[in-house]
């Protein structure tokens, strides 16, 4: 799918390409505009915000909005900024990502390389778990977490994210492992290796790309999650997305748009950084999930 520009007269094709590049650039501006607006607003003073407009640049770069967002902005009753919530998120995102990726790898391996009676059925059942709207499990899960005494705890959120994330990671790993020839596992069996040995010596070393994809995908999903966070946690245990929403909607005193924007960027920063560093894998995860999704 490449050579689209055959057999056009040079002039027409030049104009055509100009239009194409123009359109693409315009669309780039559209996608970048909100980020730019967030950033510039977060660096303005409130007076500047009132005086200028969305696209006007900050006169001087002020970081007080950032400091306030991190340290002292009000997120409901308490006014301690986002910092605590940021670390809350880190504390459950990391274990949730690691555990769900490990589970996905093992499941994917067992389900593709060791087909047993009903393994396709199991896989199909797991996949349906990717499709359901989570609203349909929220109430029972809230009851269960309460009964187990892990409601409103890091452990509870890790648990929820692992349980509902494992279907996705399994899907990733399975779709990756079906591309690895069965014969590799057969050869290793004949060489005398068992289930675990084959996994650790042969399959796992081949899985680096999909591990990266899975980690990035899960990280983005769990970090950005709002639904589980708002339902299963409260007070100072909430994840950063919930805190951000509270911060923005806390209506005491003047509306500090610059603080809101700084807070939004802080909440977005980890996933944005991951995207910048490993965007290639992120996209691969998206499309890999979508192929079957």
């Amino acid at each position: 799918m490449a050579d689209m520009s055959v057999a056009h007269t040079a002039g027409a094709s030049k104009l055509g390409r100009f239009i194409i590049y123009g359109l693409l650039a315009l669309v780039c501006l559209y996608y970048l505009m909100p980020l730019f607006v967030m950033l510039s607003t977060s660096l303005k003073s409130l007076d500047e915000i009132r005086a200028g407009n969305l696209l006007s640049l900050p006169g001087e770069f002020r970081t007080d909005a950032w400091v306030k967002a991190w340290d002292s902005a009000c997120t409901g009753v308490q006014c301690e900024g986002l910092k605590g919530f940021f670390w809350n998120s880190v504390s459950f995102v990391v274990p949730a990502v690691v555990i769900s990726t490990m589970i996905g790898a093992f499941n994917g391996y067992a389900l593709t390389m060791y087909r047993f009676r009903g393994s396709d059925l199991v896989f199909g059942m797991l996949m349906i778990g990717c499709f359901i709207p989570f609203q349909v499990v929220l109430l029972p899960m809230a009851q269960t977490l309460g009964a187990l005494g892990i409601a409103n705890s890091t452990l509870g959120l890790v648990f929820v994210h692992v349980v509902y994330g494992a279907a996705f990671t399994t899907l990733f790993f399975r779709n990756y492992y079906v591309t690895i020839p069965d014969e590799l596992v057969k050869a290793a069996k004949i060489d005398g290796a068992g289930f675990l040995r084959i996994f650790f010596s042969i399959i796992l070393p081949l899985s680096v790309p999909i591990i990266v994809v899975s980690v990035i995908w899960q990280f983005t999903q769990v970090w950005n999650d709002f639904l589980f966070g708002v339902v299963f946690s409260s007070g100072d245990r909430q994840p950063i997305t919930v805190a951000l929403n509270n911060l923005v909607n806390t209506s005491t005193g003047v509306k500090e748009y610059n603080v809101d924007m700084a807070a939004a960027i802080i909440a977005a920063l980890p996933t944005l950084l991951v995207y910048i560093v490993a965007g290639k894998y992120f996209v691969r995860g998206l499309t890999a999930g979508a192929v079957k999704g």
């Binding site: 980020l35 950005n224 997305t241 923005v248 995207y275």
Partner: peptide, 25 residues
């Protein structure tokens, strides 16, 4: 260009909502 078109996907809907709430204000 592709990575510019795609970056919003890395953001939380909460962040997106916050940003657009401000833009559409």
């Amino acid at each position: 260009i592709r990575s510019i078109y795609l970056y919003p996907m890395a953001l939380s809907f909460i962040v997106t909502g916050t940003a657009w709430k401000w833009i559409l204000n």
